[in-house]
């Protein structure tokens, strides 16, 4: 029987090695022609091609649009305007008062983002962390609760937003409940402050599960013996959390923080459906401004939209670079 297994394994190995043997002469030839140092580029070529076509090329096209004007789509029908689109966006009497800016709606979106992003990131990570810690404990029906918290992540953002619109609109479920208790109906989405808070809540509700799962994986990677040692030392739960969990979770938290911040700056779909950026401009975000400028209003201003998106891209790039640097610094320390 053992002999048969060995024979079978031998046959399978021979079959498995066939592709490698088949390409071996080609590899030897490439190594001879290109040299050992250049050979890895051959393996990277497929991925590099994909990145070139789907990431680098669109960025270059975006740059091209940002330095050209007119509502025409084809580059040959657009005129070179240099940095005029950037200048238009940055033209402002007082950056603290969007009404003094040439493109006040852009600056209102920036101002909203400056409040929305930190608020949403703090709430998101806070809730995700608490949820992950809770789900990491040996609680009853743990798998079920993990599924419940992750479920909204699987929904389309439009579905999420529509669901909340139905709940929050004038004749929605929430006002129905208030009415049933004899209370006055509230305008959940037509009051600027309330709409802003609901925008944060809905986006947190929709995405928290994703970050919870990442943090849960981070929590599970912390060796159990450290907790056991702390238990033997009779460390308080807060001390365990602040001295063991949090420091060991820091690399994962940093990843979550970067992902969450980038996603928060890019927020568009849920809020677009939920409030359309309103009331007024209370929930208008930068990507919403870019979409409206480039694709929703007539005449289309592709140049201005491209300039705004590149400015946003640069800010995100700098932010990510800073976070990465801080991360490395933390690891070195």
């Amino acid at each position: 029987m053992k002999g048969f297994e060995e024979k079978a394994m031998g046959v399978l190995s021979a079959i498995a090695s066939l592709p490698a043997r088949a390409v071996e002469p080609l590899m030897v030839l490439l190594q001879r022609v290109l040299g050992v140092g250049r050979l890895p580029w051959v393996f990277l070529l497929p991925n590099l091609t994909v990145i070139l076509f789907f990431s680098v090329l669109p960025i270059l096209i975006n740059v091209l649009y940002s330095v050209t004007g007119s509502d025409n789509l084809y580059p040959s029908e657009r005129h070179f305007v240099g940095l005029a689109n950037y200048a238009t966006l940055l033209e402002c009497g007082d950056y603290l008062d969007p009404s003094t800016c040439s493109r006040d709606l852009f600056w209102r979106a920036v101002r909203n983002a400056l409040v929305f992003v930190p608020s949403q990131v703090v709430v998101m990570i806070g809730f995700a962390l608490v949820t992950a810690i809770a789900l990491n404990r040996r609680i009853h029906a743990r798998g079920f609760f993990r599924g419940i918290f992750f479920f909204p992540v699987m929904l389309s953002p439009v579905v999420v937003a529509m669901t909340w619109v139905w709940l929050l609109q004038r004749d929605g479920a929430l006002n129905g409940v208030l009415g049933a208790f004899g209370l006055d109906r509230l305008s959940w989405l037509s009051d600027p402050a309330r709409a802003f808070k609901w925008s944060i809540f809905v986006t947190v509700w929709a995405h928290m599960g994703f970050y919870t799962i990442i943090l849960l994986a981070g929590l599970q990677s912390i060796p159990a013996d450290i907790y056991e040692a702390a238990k033997m030392d009779r460390a308080s739960p807060w001390r365990v959390f602040s001295r063991i969990t949090l420091p060991l979770l820091k690399p994962v938290l940093l990843v979550v923080f970067i992902l969450c911040t980038i996603r928060s700056v890019q927020t568009f779909d849920e809020i677009y459906v939920l409030t359309g950026g309103g009331p007024g401009t209370a929930t208008k975000m930068i990507v919403h401004y870019i979409y409206e400028t480039g694709f929703a209003v007539m005449p289309r201003n592709y140049g201005l939209a491209a300039a705004a998106s590149l400015m946003l891209g640069v800010v995100l790039f700098l932010f990510t670079a800073l976070q990465m640097k801080l991360s490395r610094k933390g690891q070195d320390a």
């Binding site: 004007g69 007119s70 238009t88 009404s99 040439s102 009331p279 007024g280 401009t281 201005l304």
Partner: peptide, 30 residues
């Protein structure tokens, strides 16, 4: 909508409407 939400007064909104339209025309013709 901005006037309704106290972000602008009527005169400022009217000035912005004019400016928005002029900028749109200018951008389309540029």
């Amino acid at each position: 909508s901005q006037v309704l939400n106290n972000e602008l007064d009527v005169d400022t909104a009217a000035a912005f409407i004019k400016k928005d339209v002029d900028l749109a025309i200018q951008a389309a013709r540029r």
